[in-house]
C-alpha cells in the first residue's frame, strides 16, 4: 500500500537553460550522441555530397560539351569515310540503331518478364522449380553482358538460325539486329521480372481473394485486377530495362557487327534486310569516336554521348512520372 500522504517525486536534474534567446522548440541534437555515431553521421553527409557532386559534374560537363559540339545535321546524316571531321558525317545510323535494338529488345523482354513474374508470384509451384527459376533470373542478372554476347555468337552462328543474320555459302555470320536484340533482352529481363514481382507482391492477399470470392478465376483476376494494379511497377521495370539496353556496349560490339553504317542483307524483304544485317548504336559510336576508337573524333563522341545521356535522363523522368501518378491513385491498407 502506498502511504496516504504522497511524497513528491525526487527532483530531476534539469539541463541548464541555454543562455541568450529562449528556444521555441526542443529538438533532438547529435550533441548527445556517442563519438562513433557522430563520425558516422558526418561520413554519411560527406559521401552523399561527394556523389551528388560527381553526378552533377558528369551531367554538366557532358551538357556543356554536347551543346558545344552537337549539330543538328549530325542527327540526320549517317557516318561516312573521309579525311576531316567535316567529311565524316554524323551518327544517324547509330541513333536509329539504338532505337531499333531498344524496341526489339524490350518487346522480347517485357512479355517474357511479366509472364515469369506472374508465374513466380501467383503460382510458384512446385516450389523447387520456382526456386530454380528465381536463381536463374538472378544468375542472368549477374552475368556480364560480354559473356552473354559471346554465348550469343555460338547460338546465332548455328546453321538453323541462319535466317536471322547474313549467311554466305553455308557459313552463318551470326551478327545482326536480331541476334543483338535477343541477347540484350536478357540484360533487361531480370529488371522487368524484379519490378513486376515487386508490384504483384505489394497487392494484399485479400484483394485477390475478393476477386475469387465473387466467382472469378485466377486467370481473370490476374488479367483484370493484378496486372493493371502492377502497371506502374511494370512500367518502371520496362524503363529501367530500356536504359540498360541503350547503355550496353559489349553485346553491340560482338553481336551487332559494330559497323559504322547499316549493312542490309541484299535480296531480303524490308525491314528484314536491315534487321538481318549488321549495324551500330550510339554507345558503339561513342566508343569508336573516342580517342581509343578507330574514328578518334572526340568532339563527335561528346555530341553522341550527350544524345545518349538525354535519352537515359528522359527515361528516368518517365519512370518517376509513372510512379508519382500511381501514388496519387490511392491504395489499400494491408
Amino acid at each position: 500500500m502506498a502511504p496516504s500522504v504522497a511524497t513528491p517525486p525526487p527532483e530531476r536534474p534539469q539541463a541548464a537553460p541555454p543562455q541568450g534567446k529562449a528556444p521555441t522548440k526542443a529538438v533532438e541534437g547529435s550533441s548527445t550522441w556517442s563519438m562513433l555515431d557522430r563520425i558516422g553521421l558526418a561520413f554519411c553527409w560527406a559521401l552523399g555530397l561527394l556523389f551528388c557532386a560527381i553526378a552533377v559534374a558528369i551531367v554538366v560537363y557532358l551538357f556543356l560539351q554536347g551543346v558545344k559540339f552537337l549539330k543538328l545535321d549530325q542527327l540526320t546524316t549517317p557516318a561516312a569515310t573521309g579525311f576531316s571531321e567535316t567529311e565524316t558525317g554524323g551518327f544517324s545510323d547509330a541513333l536509329i540503331g539504338t532505337i531499333i535494338v531498344a524496341v526489339m529488345g524490350i518487346s522480347l523482354a517485357l512479355p517474357v518478364g511479366i509472364a515469369i513474374a506472374v508465374w513466380l508470384v501467383e503460382y510458384g509451384r512446385p516450389a523447387p522449380l520456382a526456386r530454380v527459376t528465381e536463381l536463374t533470373i538472378e544468375a542472368i542478372a549477374g552475368i556480364p553482358s560480354i559473356v552473354l554476347a559471346l554465348f550469343g555468337t555460338v547460338i546465332f552462328s548455328s546453321t538453323a538460325l541462319g535466317f536471322l543474320s547474313r549467311s554466305n555459302e553455308g557459313v552463318v555470320f551470326g551478327r545482326s539486329f536480331f541476334a543483338a536484340a535477343a541477347m540484350l533482352s536478357l540484360v533487361a529481363l531480370p529488371l522487368v521480372v524484379a519490378s513486376t514481382r515487386q508490384g504483384l507482391e505489394s497487392i494484399p492477399r485479400h484483394v485477390r481473394e475478393a476477386s475469387y470470392a465473387v466467382g472469378k478465376t485466377k486467370a481473370a483476376t490476374i488479367r483484370r485486377i493484378l496486372l493493371p494494379t502492377a502497371r506502374p511497377q511494370v512500367a518502371t521495370g520496362m524503363i529501367l530495362g530500356l536504359g540498360r539496353i541503350i547503355g550496353d556496349t559489349a553485346i553491340i560490339l560482338v553481336l551487332l557487327g559494330a559497323t559504322q553504317n547499316f549493312a542490309p542483307v541484299e535480296g531480303a524483304v524490308f525491314p528484314f534486310d536491315y534487321l538481318r544485317g549488321a549495324g551500330t548504336t550510339l554507345t558503339n559510336f561513342v566508343y569508336e569516336a573516342s580517342p581509343t576508337g578507330n574514328l578518334n573524333q572526340p568532339q563527335k563522341a561528346y555530341a553522341a554521348a550527350f544524345v545518349l545521356l538525354l535519352m537515359v535522363l528522359g527515361l528516368n523522368a518517365a519512370a518517376d512520372l509513372v510512379h508519382r501518378r500511381a501514388r496519387k491513385a490511392g491504395t489499400w491498407s494491408h
Binding site: P204, H206, V207, E209, A210, S211, Y212, A213, V214, G215, K216, T217, R224, I225, P228, T229, A329, G330, T331, W332, S333, H334
Partner: peptide, 18 residues
C-alpha cells in the same frame, strides 16, 4: 467459381478494385 457466386464474401479491409 459457381459456388463463390452463390456464396459471396466481404473482407475485413475494404478492398475495392483499383
Amino acid at each position: 467459381t459457381l459456388l463463390r457466386r452463390r456464396v459471396t464474401m466481404v473482407f475485413q479491409q475494404p478492398n475495392p478494385f483499383p
